[in-house]
């Protein structure tokens, strides 16, 4: 799978797990970003085919990063990574234009299937 994925999550742990799953799924072109600033930088460096975006980041609360990403590039494919209890924000994110969401901790197969689906859209 040559598609490029950008993983934006400030938790080392969760990132590592996600990274591992992506690797096992055959996605080798994965970049990581820890803050919103870093994410935006990496997006402008090279447009990712898919962004996995954690809901809570240290330098941006709420969905302002998602908003910015979609304003700059309305076709960008974004999948939200959420934790338990963030239902309301997720609905908002989908309204805003995120394609899908996945709750952490996620099931590996479902996660990979969803990524494949979104990339194929």
């Amino acid at each position: 799978m040559e598609e490029s994925i950008l993983l934006v999550d400030d938790a080392i742990f969760a990132r590592k797990l996600t990274r591992k799953t992506l690797d096992e799924g055959g996605y080798k072109n994965v970049r990581e970003a820890v803050t919103a600033k870093e994410a935006l930088e990496k997006i402008s460096e090279e447009r990712p085919d898919l962004i996995l975006l954690d809901i809570t980041l240290p330098d941006r609360k709420d969905l302002s990063l998602l908003k910015e990403i979609l304003e700059n590039d309305p076709e960008m494919k974004v999948i939200m990574l959420s934790a338990v209890g963030q239902e309301l924000i997720i609905a908002d994110a989908i309204e805003m234009g995120a394609r899908e969401f996945v709750s952490k901790p996620f099931k590996k197969d479902e996660f990979l299937t969803m990524i494949r689906n979104v990339l194929d859209e």
């Binding site: 080392i12 797990l17 338990v84 901790p105």
Partner: peptide, 11 residues
Amino acid sequence: RMERVEEIIGI
């Protein structure tokens, strides 16, 4: 068991 797991976070 996953049903007991609420969340996983980084240190």
